[in-house]
Simulated scan of single mutants.
Amino acid sequence: MQKLILPAFAAATLALASCGGGAPKEEKKDSIAIGSENKTATAPQANVLTTEETAAGWKLLFNGSNLDGWRIYQNKPSNTWGVVDGTLHCTGSTTDKSDMRGDLLSNDEYENFELETDWKLAPQGNSGILYLVTEEFKAPYMSGPEYQLIDDENFPEKLEDWQKSGANYAMNPPSKLAAKPIGEWNHTRIVVNKGHVEHWLNGEKVVDTQMWTPEWEKAKKTGKWKDYKGYGSAKKGHICVQDHGSEIWFRNMKIKSL
Rank of each mutant, 00 (worst) to 15 (best):
A12Y: 00
L14N: 04
L16S: 13
L16G: 15
L16A: 14
A17S: 12
C19P: 06
G21C: 15
G21P: 13
G21T: 09
K25E: 15
E26F: 15
D30V: 09
S31E: 09
I32A: 15
S36M: 04
S36D: 05
T40I: 00
A41H: 07
T42E: 03
T42Q: 12
N47S: 12
T51C: 07
L61A: 03
N66T: 01
R71H: 13
Q74Y: 05
N75S: 13
P77G: 14
S78Q: 09
S78K: 08
S78N: 13
L88C: 06
S93E: 09
T94W: 11
M100P: 00
S106W: 04
N107H: 04
E114C: 04
D118M: 01
K120W: 04
P123A: 08
Q124D: 06
G125I: 00
N126P: 04
G128L: 02
L130H: 06
L130C: 05
T134A: 11
G144V: 01
E146C: 01
Y147K: 01
N154H: 13
P156Q: 04
E157D: 03
G166K: 03
Y169C: 11
Y169E: 06
N172L: 04
S175E: 12
L177D: 06
A179I: 12
N186M: 07
N186H: 06
V191A: 05
K194G: 12
V197E: 00
E198P: 07
G203C: 07
G203K: 06
E204Q: 08
T209A: 15
W212L: 11
P214H: 07
A219F: 11
K221V: 05
K224N: 09
K224T: 14
A234P: 06
K235D: 14
G237V: 05
G245W: 02
R251S: 03
